[in-house]
Design a protein around this nucleic acid. Structure first.
Lengths: 358, 358
DNA sequence: ATAAATTTGTGCGTATGTATC
DNA sequence: GGATACATACGCACAAATTTA
């Protein structure tokens, strides 16, 4: 029976219909309580009952003294207070610090992190996304895996766009999405350039490099390294660059540097992909009976400060670490509150001077 | 002013408290709207407003004509494939490795981690638990905060028992629950004993100690240290033990060790709470112009291997780290599959010999 | 089996407070 | 200051479901 329809249910359904059909658009003000009460010939309490349901379901939100507004995200599950965080690693190096930064911002707004790691594997990234899409999640922070390769699973990100679930890339970004997707990252090419330039300015001529080959950061830092050499008129010798993979990192750089030194191709300086690798390189140099920086200068990247306690302080590039995580989380929360939109932060690298350069 | 407190908020909070404290148990009927209205001297509408919030949050559910009842969450929240992990820290020291171990096991069964950290604060632990109890979570792995103090929020854990949500303690365990709650931890007293004994066996007489005062691990390692000294007939001098708190850890141990050395109370050896603190201690010794182990032996705990690259290798106690996380996750998955039951793992500490002991 | 009592659900009207414009 | 809009709170009436006498 039509006459049996409850009044507040009718109002609720009508408003829902208007929101879905687009008659009321995200951010737009819906009619005031009194207006609706007059329109429907009901009491204001009845209108409030209807609005209350919609508020709890996340379709609209009230602002004291201003009015009631249509939510940005047309989704049921808006107050899950869960944020999906997908990172490459969990326990290594700077990653826990980035995560800590993310968490410190999110927890202030009562968000919880659902954490996934990919071990820098594309396949795992896809699986993580698919798994998390089934869950009740308000937004994502994603550190892309193997970000130097074209992203073949862009359809999953399109799905996020469709659901209006905001996401932020951190550390790296698939090149094809760099223009459209919000991201927080460093200008790695500039970093590679600056640190190489720093060595050149201090009179180093034979500058070797150790770079990671399977992420965009490694590619970009190498690019900057080459640009600095070319600009200074120094010869770029591919043989004095050591490339390594994620899986190699504990052995390959160490043995390659040793070999490089032992075969009388001793460089003046070695630019390292990051501080972690710089430690292996320093160990290789030391094990060859040479000293840093007296015989060979070494630079790092990320300012991880592993070596602080032991006298030798790496000259490196500052990595904001926690701050980077905080920025990404701030950006995501802003998107959750104020809707999607073009946003990105590129952090310009600065050199941190230590005593590992002659 | 008391009068400023909103009435429905007060009612809501009171009911929530009763639910969490266990005064109202799952399935039980809460007082009727009219009863509450009379009790609180408010209108029935006001009571309804309060109940409505709790209904939306899932704590209670109304049944027409019968009453309003406390939810038993087990019915609503199941098979979410989410595991809540509450740890003290996120980015420091061995914690990321433990977390990695947990994740590696859970992800095989398609579980996701919802991560929370407490910074070793009891208040935060309570907040985390309350927040997570609202969510859709199948089980918990918890590293208790300030586990040396009696747990005053045991009611929350009882809540978990009632809902039949399994949980496993890791690293530490509140002493009052040690007999009943599944846990995975080390025998810290034995570890403290063994490492002190190791020093005694190598002829050290004046053995100082640096211990953390605000967790059960510190208390237990200290107990073992005292037992080893007593057993060997060595004098236990409280002045040669430095206690520090979580918040102190970066300054206090360093300055105290320096002071100890400078005031002619130089010990033969220093037993440290963990490897992290051992590094500060070594720095203090070095800064006093002394050498490790020639002048003073130093031992760590946890086998964090921070110092590996630099020649000095700490003599320490092996900490399974990733393995510990894996064991806890395995135990939890077993409980999810086969029901709760008495389970616990105590890991017996082994010494890892380095070159930091003379 | 029925009526009465209890309890939640829906709805109206009014008043006062407080934030925004 | 005044108008508008949401927030809290009270009182009342009746409907619908359930329990109890």
């Amino acid at each position: 029976m039509e006459g049996k329809e409850l009044k507040y249910i009718k109002i609720e359904a009508d408003l829902k219909e208007m929101i879905f059909s687009g008659k009321i658009r995200p951010g737009e003000k819906i009619p005031s309580e009194n207006t609706l009460a007059a329109e429907y010939q009901v009491s204001r309490q009845t209108v409030r009952k209807a609005l209350n349901e919609l508020i709890h379901e996340g379709y609209i939100y009230p602002e004291h003294g201003r009015g009631t507004f249509c939510s940005d995200m047309i989704r049921h599950k808006r107050n899950s207070k869960n944020i999906g965080v997908i990172m490459t690693y969990m326990s290594d190096y700077i990653f826990p610090h980035v995560l800590k930064g993310i968490n410190s911002v999110l927890e202030k707004d009562d968000y919880s992190i659902i954490l996934k790691t990919t071990n820098n594997s594309r396949t795992v990234e896809v699986r993580c996304l698919e798994e998390l899409l089934k869950k009740d999640i308000d937004g994502f922070i994603i550190e892309p895996s193997k970000s130097h390769i074209y992203c073949k699973h862009a359809s999953l990100y399109k799905k996020l766009d469709e659901y209006k679930i905001p996401y932020v890339f951190i550390q790296g970004c698939y090149s094809q999405m760099r223009d459209t997707c919000p991201h927080v990252l460093m200008d790695d090419e500039d970093g590679g350039y600056k640190i190489t330039r720093y060595l050149i300015d201090r009179g180093h001529k034979k500058i070797a490099g150790v770079f990671k080959s399977d992420d965009s950061q490694g590619q970009n830092r190498h690019k900057g390294y080459v640009r600095a050499l070319n600009e200074a008129g120094l010869n770029y010798d591919p043989d004095s660059v050591i490339w390594y993979y994620t899986e190699d990192r504990k052995i390959h750089p160490y043995t390659s540097v040793k070999k490089m030194i032992e075969t009388h191709k001793k460089p003046d300086a070695i630019v390292c992909y990051n501080d972690q690798i710089a430690l292996y390189v320093i160990k290789a140099i030391t094990d060859c009976g040479l000293k840093v920086p007296d015989d060979i200068s070494v630079t790092g990247y990320d300012d991880f400060r592993l070596a602080n306690s032991f006298g030798l302080q790496l000259t490196t590039i500052r990595h904001p670490q926690e701050k980077l995580g905080e920025l990404a989380a701030d950006m995501l929360i802003d998107m959750l509150k104020n809707g999607n939109g073009e946003r990105n932060i590129v952090i310009h690298p600065e050199i941190v001077e230590g005593n590992s350069v002659r």
